[in-house]
Simulated assay, not measured.
Amino acid sequence: MNDAVHSGDNTLNVLLMVLLVAFALASWYFYATPMAGQSGADMATISGSPTPGSGESAIHPSP
């Protein structure tokens, strides 16, 4: 009886370690790899300078 309990504990420990490593790898992959579709479009939108005459006079009237 004791041998069966110990082998079940060992199997559970191995399964827990495998799940923990899989979660760590999935988290690393999610946060470490850049999202190509999102980062390119957002950076172009943020870094792009506004064109002259695009409504700036309506926002800041000249004296």
Rank of each mutant, 00 (worst) to 15 (best):
S54I: 02
P50E: 10
G8Y: 03
A24P: 00
G48K: 15
S49I: 07
T11H: 03
L20W: 02
A4I: 14
H6Q: 14
L12Q: 03
P52E: 04
P34W: 05
A4L: 13
D42E: 09
A22T: 12
M1P: 10
V18A: 10
Y31W: 10
S39N: 10
N10K: 14
H6R: 11
T51S: 08
S7F: 05
I59Y: 00
A36E: 15
T33W: 05
M43D: 08
N10L: 12
A58L: 12
S47F: 08
T11R: 07
D42A: 10
G48F: 01
A58N: 07
S57N: 10
D9M: 12
I59G: 00
W28L: 15
I59Q: 01
P50S: 13
M35I: 12
L19A: 02
G8D: 13
A41R: 15
Y29N: 06
A36T: 14
N2I: 13
I46A: 11
P50G: 02
W28K: 09
A44W: 07
A36Y: 03
Y31M: 08
F23S: 07
Q38S: 09
G37D: 13
S7D: 11
G55Q: 02
V5S: 14
A24C: 13
V5L: 15
M1H: 08
P52R: 09
G40W: 04
I46D: 02
L19E: 04
A24V: 14
A26W: 09
L20T: 11
M1Q: 10
P52A: 12
L15Y: 01
F23K: 02
S57L: 10
T11P: 00
N10D: 05
E56K: 01
Y31H: 11
S57G: 02
H6T: 09
H6S: 08
I59P: 00
Q38I: 15
A41W: 03
E56M: 06
G53K: 07
S47M: 12
L19R: 05
G37K: 11
M35A: 11
S49K: 14
S27A: 13
G48H: 09
A32H: 07
A44H: 05
G53H: 05
V21W: 03
